[in-house]
């Protein structure tokens, strides 16, 4: 299936929903790894919005990326609770382990605040990380 077909299929899936834009953007991001200009144009045309309006929404939310990044992503929580449990001391080792191969992404809170430091890879969560465990997680990402 071509890219355009897939795109219009995603848009059609959400036809008739109230406030369909965010659900569409989630599906597009999931499918293509990004919401690029072409996607913005197609979505804008289908929802009777301007591309500027769609772009405004895409650029507002941290989850939507303008360009696909093929690298695996490891999300590390660096909010207060994980800080109080020492996440900042792990960042140096983590960055070294990640190098250019893995993208480290800071998030603010994964909701496991009593057992940090925490990280997320895909939909799998990891708690009680120490330096060795985090490095292993990054190496296996």
């Amino acid at each position: 299936m071509s890219r355009e077909q897939k795109l219009s299929e995603i848009i059609a899936d959400h036809a008739g929903r109230e406030g369909p834009l965010i659900p569409i953007l989630h599906d597009v991001q999931e499918e293509f790894g990004c919401v690029d200009e072409e996607a913005e144009q197609a979505i804008a045309a289908a929802l009777n919005l301007t591309r500027a309006e769609v772009h405004g929404v895409v650029s507002f939310y941290h989850d939507f990326k303008p360009k696909a990044d093929p690298r695996p992503v490891v999300q590390i929580c660096r909010a207060e609770s994980c800080k109080s449990r020492g996440v900042e001391a792990l960042i140096g080792d983590a960055e070294q382990a990640a190098g250019a191969r893995v993208k480290l992404h800071t998030v603010y809170c994964l909701g496991l605040c009593s057992s940090g430091p925490n990280a997320r890879v895909g939909d799998k969560l990891h708690a009680r990380l120490d330096s060795a465990a985090l490095v292993k997680l990054i190496e296996n990402a």
Partner: peptide, 18 residues
């Protein structure tokens, strides 16, 4: 979609509206 401010109720409503 990863925006902390959407926990504020009116911001959340805007987000729901797309």
């Amino acid at each position: 979609a990863g925006a902390y401010v959407c926990g504020e109720e009116t911001s959340l409503l805007n987000s729901l509206e797309g």
